[in-house]
Structure formats: C-alpha cells, structure tokens
Simulated scan of single mutants.
Amino acid sequence: MSRAWSIFFGVGLMRPAPGTWGSAVAILLGLMIDRTFGVWTLLGATVAVTAIGFWACARELKDRPGADPGEIVIDEVAGQWIALLFPAFAFWNLGMQDWAHVAWPGWVAAFVFFRLFDIWKPWLVGWADRRGDVVGVMLDDLIAGVFAGLAVMVAAGVAHGVILR
C-alpha cells in the first residue's frame, strides 16, 4: 500500500516529468474536492495526504538513504494542495465556494508557482531538499507549496489592487 500511495496510484509512473504530472493530477483532484465537499475538506485531505506521504516515503525509502526517486509524487500532491489552499480559502472567505471556473487564474497560478518553486528550489526549499533524508523528500515540496501559495496571494494583490484600479 505504501508503494501505491507514494506513486499516487500510478501517476508517478507517467512520463515525462512525473512531478509535473503529479502536480497536474493534484490540481484537478483538489479542485474536485473543493467544489464537491468544500475548502475544509480540502484542508483535511491535505493534512491526510501529508501524513500518508511521510509514512509512505519512510517505508519506500527505508533501504535507500538519500534517494528521492522521480516516481514518488505523493510529496507533489501534498505541496500542490497546500498551494491550492491559499486561493481556495481566499475565495471561501469572499463567499465564493464554486470559484474554480470563474477564477481560474488562482488555480493556474498555484500550479505554475508550485512547479517553479519545486524545480528552482530557492532558500528553504533547497535546504529541505539537501537534507537527503525521508523528511527532506516531503518537506521541500511542503515548503514549495507555502511559497507558491504566498506568491499566488501577492500576484492576486498586484492584479486586483494595483493593475485593475
């Protein structure tokens, strides 16, 4: 079961760029969760997939210290959902529970910024990645998700507070 979760039920086997596929599937699934069950369920799912990710990575990498195989994408799912939570909660706060089809720049920006931070690995993202342990496998994507979410909010603030006024 840890293998299935770590490769997110086969998504990590998609080529090329399994991390990007993992993020794309995470965005679509996250949007479906948010639209169907609400932002609080997305938050719960994010916490759950993060915990499962730490467990699955620990089991799958126990005999491979320092490894971060490309097919393990549960970390991308968790990080991408963290990035998606930022616009999801912002729209929830505005009373817009069904926002994804009208405010698509929010989730597109969450995807693009997350991939940028996950690939570029600036500052704390790179620090976590260089740990070379199971915690680092998950942690770099979780931090990239927070950075991406913050970048989405800054971009939205610029677009709505400066450009459109």
Rank of each mutant, 00 (worst) to 15 (best):
S23R: 02
A58D: 11
V73E: 01
A83M: 10
D34T: 07
W104D: 07
A103P: 10
A56N: 02
A103K: 12
T36K: 06
C57G: 06
F37S: 13
P65Q: 05
R59G: 09
N93H: 14
D98H: 14
G38L: 01
V134C: 06
D118T: 11
L43G: 02
A103N: 15
I72E: 01
A103W: 11
T46H: 04
E60V: 15
I143A: 10
L42G: 04
W99Y: 05
V25D: 04
V125L: 01
A148G: 06
L124I: 09
W92A: 15
D141G: 13
P65H: 04
V152K: 03
I72S: 01
V102W: 14
C57R: 00
M32E: 11
G106D: 11
D63Q: 06
V102Y: 12
D140M: 08
V135G: 10
L94A: 15
L28A: 15
L116N: 09
V47L: 14
N93Q: 15
V47G: 10
D63H: 03
A88V: 12
A109N: 13
P87W: 10
A151E: 07
A24S: 11
A100T: 12
A24W: 09
W99S: 03
R64K: 15
R59W: 10
W99L: 04
L116P: 08
I119W: 06
D118Q: 10
G30D: 08
V134I: 08
L142I: 03
G38K: 04
D34F: 07
E60C: 15
A78K: 02
W123G: 12
N93E: 13
W92Y: 13
A67M: 05
I27M: 12
L28Y: 14
A110Q: 00
W120G: 08
G38I: 02
W120S: 10
I72M: 03
L94Q: 15
H101S: 15
T36W: 02
P87F: 12
H101E: 13
P69W: 03
W81C: 14
A103F: 15
A90D: 11
A128H: 00
N93Y: 12
